[in-house]
Design a protein around this nucleic acid. Structure first.
Lengths: 142, 142
DNA sequence: CGCGAATAGTTTCCAAGTAAACAGTTATCG
DNA sequence: CGATAACTGTTTACTTGGAAACTATTCGCG
């Protein structure tokens, strides 16, 4: 296919499709989406984080983040809180149910990480992570 | 962010967003989409290819391919032809206008390929391509 | 103070992409 | 031959994700 198979953009897209399939295969039957679990994951590590900060961290656009949060709140997994010191912002945290949910999902999520590197040696996996990182943040300041 | 930043799926997503931005920056002003130019590219190399074959090659799902083809036909860039020997299938080829369009876009498209590897040495770029390929096709038969 | 600029999140509207059901055509096999 | 299965692409209805315009709040600076 000529220059196409050399195109990082094209290759990344192919890889992304595969990893996406892996994700859903790993959560067979369970109704989770990548965006949801990553938000739960981040909130577990950073309780009370601001909605915008979480969105930036995960590269989720504000408009989409609003919807994601609405769904998670509706499902009872996270709670919103508007702090008095800045009433524009929204702080997010896991509910008890959200924590339980995350613990239920964690093993499968970690298993997926492992499955992702099938066919790659541990050394190659590290290399790949490092190179993708360079690709995503070319001028990252240390 | 814990295991998240180690997740290939997450990293790939970040990289994909950056390359997507690069793509549109490279075609500043021009109204092209990645799917469109890749189809034109493939049809230039394989005139008269079957619609389904092109879709498989580019990892585009049939339903989406139908829309893509409809738009490209509507724009006068490609032509559909139903061969008598298998009237279920559709053969695609570039129109003159499509060829011209591709030639107009080609320089910018190639420039984007170059820009993608900013921050990576040629050696690293090759390595990355190879590793992503392994990631996307873990059990690729030779 | 108070008014314009910046910030945080939301709403509205739209594009990309998919799954599932569908229609038409060809292959298969008794 | 004729019924059934398999294949090719399309349609419909939906989900994901985003850009742009909007609301509410806070900041900055005279």
């Amino acid at each position: 296919m000529g220059a196409l198979t050399q195109s990082l953009g094209f290759l990344i897209r192919l890889a992304q499709v595969r990893l996406y399939d892996l994700f859903f295969a790993g959560f067979d039957g369970v109704d989770v989406k990548p965006g949801e679990i990553t938000v739960l994951w981040v909130l577990d590590l950073n309780p009370g984080a601001r909605q915008g900060a979480v969105a930036r961290e995960l590269n989720i656009k504000p408009a989409h983040m609003t919807k994601l949060v609405q769904r998670l709140v509706h499902d009872g997994l996270i709670a919103r809180q508007v702090p008095p010191e800045d009433r524009r912002s929204v702080l997010l945290s896991l509910t008890e149910q959200g924590k339980q949910r995350l613990e239920t999902l964690r093993p499968a999520f970690l298993a997926i990480q492992t499955a992702e590197s099938t066919g790659l040696s541990p050394r190659e996996t590290d290399q790949l992570r490092s190179l993708i990182h360079k690709l995503a943040f070319p001028k990252d300041r240390p």
